[in-house]
Design a protein around this nucleic acid. Structure first.
Lengths: 143, 143
DNA sequence: CTATCATGTAACAATAAAAGTTACTTTGTT
DNA sequence: AACAAAGTAACTTTTATTGTTACATGATAG
C-alpha cells in the first residue's frame, strides 16, 4: 500500500533546521531527504500556512522556523499536513442500507477511531525538540 | 490515500454466508459487494488458505464457512488478508546513517506500533458473530 | 537598474497496490 | 456430453503521493 512519508520527511527537515542558524533553501532541504526542491516547497507551504515556518524569496532567502521546536508537537505537524485518514483500511460505502454492512463498518470504525485517538494523543505529547538527543532517555521513562 | 477495503468487504460477505445454508458462489458474493466474481475469488482464496472457508467446483459448488462465526475474530481475517502495515504514514529509509532520521523514525514507529497493537488487540476481541444483531448492546457494555 | 537567487505555482509524468476486467483452463455434477 | 463453478493468468483502471519541467514573481546585491 502506498505510504505517505511527508510527516517523517518534514520532521527530519525541521530538526535539521533548528540546528542551522540561517534561512535554509528548498534546495538544501531536498538534499536532506533526497528529493526535489518543488516537493519540499509543496510540503513546507502547508507548514507555513499553519504558522510553523516562514519563507523569504530572493538572495539569502529560504525557510526558517517561526517557533521553537519545544513549542511544536508531532500532532501539530500531522494536522498541518492535512486531513486524510491514518489507516490503510477502508470502509465500504456501497450498500449503506444493508444492516450487515452497517454493523461491519461500525465495528471497524469503533476500533480504528480508538486506535487513531491513542496515536494522536501520543503525537500531541511529543515535541520536536525531543527528537534530538534526549529521545532515548525520554522513552526509557515513558512507562 | 488509496484504501484497502478487502477487510470490510470480506467481513460483509462472511456474515451473509452464515445466514445461507448452502454453498454460495463467487457470483452471488460479487453481487453482495457490487464487484466482480474474480475479485471475490482472489480475496476468498486467502481465507481458504487460512482455513476459514472451503470452496468446491462444479454444479452446486461455491464457498462455505469452515468454522462457526463465533470462532473467528476480526484479527483472524485481518491476518489472513496479509501482512501490510495498517497505517498510511510511512517512514523514510534513505538516510539511515542520519541520527535525526533515526530519531524521527523511532518516535513515529513507537507511537504507531502502540496504536497498531491496541487495534489488533481489539480486533482479536471481536468475533464475527458479534457483527450480527447484538453488536449495539455489546458496545454499550464495553467500558 | 539589472543580474541573480530563491520562492510560488501550474502542468504533467511516474509510481504502486487494490480493484476491475477478459479470457481461458480445470474440475465436478447432472 | 453439457454445463456450472472455481482457478488463474494477463491486462487495464484507479488514485494520491511523488517526481519533474517550466516559468512567473519577488527580493537583494552590486
Amino acid at each position: 500500500m502506498r505510504k505517505d512519508s511527508r510527516l517523517s520527511r518534514v520532521l527530519h527537515i525541521l530538526v535539521h533546521m533548528a540546528a542551522i542558524d540561517r534561512p535554509v533553501t528548498s534546495e538544501e532541504m531536498a538534499g536532506m531527504i533526497s528529493t526535489n526542491p518543488v516537493v519540499v516547497r509543496r510540503t513546507m507551504a502547508l507548514l507555513r500556512k499553519a504558522g510553523y515556518v516562514t519563507s523569504a524569496r530572493g538572495h539569502h532567502g529560504g525557510w526558517q522556523l517561526a517557533q521553537p521546536l519545544a513549542d511544536i508537537t508531532l500532532l501539530d505537524i500531522h494536522h498541518a499536513l492535512g486531513e486524510g485518514s491514518v489507516f490503510t483500511i477502508g470502509l465500504t460505502d456501497e450498500h449503506s442500507h444493508c444492516v450487515i454492512e452497517q454493523a461491519v463498518n461500525a465495528a471497524l470504525k469503533d476500533v480504528m477511531d480508538e486506535a487513531e485517538a491513542l496515536m494522536l494523543q501520543r503525537f500531541g505529547q511529543i515535541t520536536l525538540d525531543q527528537l534530538g538527543t534526549d529521545r532515548i532517555s525520554h522513552y526509557l521513562h515513558k512507562s
